[in-house]
């Protein structure tokens, strides 16, 4: 039997069909400096040009032999398209992710332009997906979006939004409903471009910030609407503290759950059962960028597998400045140690 392509491996995993080995990919950025150097470009340029965006994602995936890839790389594009500006840090040394400089200060000020999907860098992202569909038919091509709450925090000041959750409950709820609609529209748009999976990152909603009770009333229901609307495989990703909300995350109806290193995965597996796709949960910076010894890297990856993930995912974007040997060890360990079946996915 011919080996599976990366895309087949990933798609079968999402269907919980038997595969040859654990897929190695992520729904969070996997672009690395080695790929950017190979292309002769810079980190600050790959957000603003379709060829470079697609190229950086694809070159990274090929360089490390990943099964999938994901664009865009930053979380500012939609806010920018809504007129909030963007800081790309062209002149700064090192890697700095784009950020949003002019958030709305008040719920009353917010007016979401109808045509945001054709503004700012949105068309560039569309073109990058088209290039990838053409150049990488063998890889799973993913999109990621922010969850409604975290997205809200990109277009208006997060502290005001957080206080609004308590003080201006109705108005804030209406705003979150509006953000949910935007999120759904965006997911539908990415689906129309032919993406293979969508990762929804409600990263500002862990219990580092919100109480489980608030999560239940204000975050969960909106996420459920989003996952109900997505028809390609979907992932519900939250970084930070998730132990207290993991069961509610599960109830939102995504095809897979993804958590970071703060989650107690063994307990999570017990709570949600063996039938649920779990992705996670290593610290990308602390593992791939800083570890001095590849044996340590292998241990981290093996622990994720032993703890019961169905695919080893970094808890956040891979920090682009990875050590080559660490990245190689990560991928190699997933392939070898992930040869055996995982809780929700059998092997061929």
């Amino acid at each position: 039997m011919a080996a599976l392509t990366g895309k087949e491996r990933v798609m079968k995993m999402f269907q919980k069909e038997p595969i040859d080995r654990m897929p190695c990919f992520s729904g969070q950025g996997t672009v690395t400096v080695q790929a950017i150097e190979k292309m002769g470009t810079q980190f600050s340029k790959i957000h603003n040009d379709a060829e470079l965006m697609a190229g950086a994602a694809l070159t990274s995936a090929r360089l490390w032999d990943l099964d999938g890839l994901v664009i865009p790389f930053d979380m500012a594009a939609v806010a920018e398209a809504m007129g909030r500006g963007v800081s790309l840090y062209d002149a700064a040394e090192g890697i700095i992710y784009p950020t949003v400089p002019n958030k709305w200060r008040d719920l009353d000020e917010i007016s979401v332009p109808e045509d945001f999907m054709s503004k700012g860098r949105m068309p560039i992202i569309d073109d990058a997906f088209k290039i990838l569909k053409k150049d990488a038919p063998d890889l799973a091509i993913g999109a990621w979006v922010l969850g409604p709450f975290t997205f809200g925090g990109q277009i208006m000041e997060l502290d005001i939004l957080l206080k609004g959750l308590k003080k201006k409950k109705e108005q804030t709820e209406a705003f979150l409903s509006q953000m949910t609609k935007v999120t759904i529209d965006l997911c539908k748009h990415y689906e129309s471009l032919g993406v293979d999976f969508i990762c929804v990152r409600e990263m500002g909603s862990g219990t580092d910030l919100l109480s489980p009770r608030m999560w239940k009333t204000l975050i969960g229901p909106n996420l459920k609407l989003v996952f109900d609307a997505i028809s390609v495989p979907s992932i519900n990703h939250i970084c930070g503290s998730t132990d207290m909300i993991i069961e509610m995350m599960h109830e939102c109806g995504a095809d897979a759950l993804s958590v970071d290193q703060k989650n107690n995965l063994v307990e999570t597996r017990e709570k949600v059962g063996n039938d649920v796709l779990l992705l996670g949960n290593f610290d990308p910076y602390g593992t791939l960028t800083t570890m001095e010894d590849t044996a340590e890297v292998a241990d981290v990856i093996k622990k994720c597998i032993d703890d019961g993930v169905d695919s080893v995912w970094p808890g956040c974007d891979i920090w682009p400045d990875v050590k080559k040997e660490n990245m190689e060890t990560y991928v190699q360990t997933v392939k070898e140690y992930g040869a055996k079946a995982s809780p929700a996915v059998k092997r061929i």
């Binding site: 502290d159 957080l162 206080k163 308590k166 003080k167 219990t207 580092d208 910030l209 919100l210 608030m214």
Partner: peptide, 14 residues
């Protein structure tokens, strides 16, 4: 002690 979360703390600060 996880009785308050960040929204409450911000309002207390106000």
């Amino acid at each position: 002690t996880h009785e308050y979360f960040v929204p409450e703390v911000l309002m207390c600060a106000d």
